[in-house]
Design a protein around this nucleic acid. Structure first.
Lengths: 195, 195
DNA sequence: TACAGTCTACCTTCTAGTAGGTAGAATGTC
DNA sequence: GACATTCTACCTACTAGAAGGTAGACTGTA
């Protein structure tokens, strides 16, 4: 049993925190070295280049997100409840400031200046998330539990966009509650016909 | 009559394009110098520091946005039509790639690493925009034209968040159409009861 | 002995910003 | 009208520090 984080884990989680604060160009190897307590050169041993580091970071983020979403489906079968868990997860992350923004949403804003490898990971996350939301909404609509005003795909894209925008707003207002203000009615609306 | 842009105008519009691509840390004075065709030092003559430049830039963006929103109210009185014009404006900007993202939405993602003066401008834009949307929705609800599922304020925040998220999605998918896919139903929903 | 992990010491390039100067237009003042 | 002055807009040349990255030595462990 070994739960001590490896140095490369520490580097990755530190870089994740820094990237959430200011994106790809908002941090440097020196910043990470200061926090982790090793020298810049040692980071290069684990991640030869910044692109390697960030690609790995986003790829891992993506894996975790995909695993998390699949896990939601294992825990509960109810589509509406699945959406609630997903939204609640972010609400908690934002409230305790542990991860106040989706890394990929943040990086999407900087896509034109991102290294291509990183950009590909970011785009892949958008596709996966919208795909997952589409399937959940579709199931909810099929079993009559959810009321969709347009196609599952369009509703899913709108859902995702609203979540991402709400994260930005929470940061802009420096108020975690705004995320709930925006996302609460979002969920309600999908079941309005039954209330 | 003189409509030639001054050098400082050229610097500002160039910086605006660069900041839309990659945010505050995504461009340098050297980048601007290359495009505008003057030397780095000459930019410092017009804008002593990068903070001056970006603060001026965002302040001007904000003025233009506020003037634009006020102008919409002068052109049409109908709240729903006002929202349509607002959304249509962005749809056009994204479609012709002239301004595929709201500068303040983009910068909001980087707020923690932004100079304070710039951050204040960004937050002010969020407040103004959500205030404007709140007042438009409120009027629409009062005259019975719009159907709000929650408070005008909450609906306005959700509206704004969805717009911002849709901009991110359009960039992530590299597909301007996604903005319309998301925002179309957004407007429809507000009038659904009457269709 | 092999090697992973870390170090010191360095390199190159980019960064914002400064110092000091020049040409020319505008503005006084005699 | 002629002059000195000041201002504007730009320049070349430079700085200090930060960026990402490299080379090679050291150290502990298998």
């Amino acid at each position: 049993m070994n739960n001590l984080p490896t140095t490369s884990d520490s580097i990755l989680s530190c870089a994740r925190a820094l990237i959430i604060a200011g994106g790809y160009n908002g941090f440097s190897y020196a910043d990470i070295a200061d926090v982790v307590g090793i020298r810049k050169a040692s980071i290069h041993h684990h991640f030869p280049s910044k692109v390697d580091l960030v690609r790995t970071l986003v790829a891992r983020y993506r894996e975790e997100a995909e695993a998390g979403l699949r896990n939601i489906e294992l825990q509960v079968a109810d589509p509406l409840e699945q959406l609630r868990i997903y939204v609640g997860y972010w609400e908690a992350c934002i409230a305790d400031a542990s991860a106040p923004l989706c890394i990929c949403a943040l990086l999407a804003g900087q896509l034109p200046v991102l290294p291509e490898e990183v950009g590909l990971e970011v785009r892949a996350h958008f596709r996966f998330l919208s795909g997952w939301l589409t399937s959940v909404l579709e199931r909810g609509a099929r079993n009559g539990q959810l009321q969709l005003a347009s196609s599952p795909r369009a509703e899913a894209e709108a859902f995702m966009a609203t979540i991402h925008g709400a994260m930005l707003s929470a940061r802009a207002y420096d108020d975690p509650k705004i995320f709930g203000v925006v996302t609460g009615p979002l969920l309600e609306r999908l079941t309005f016909a039954h209330s």
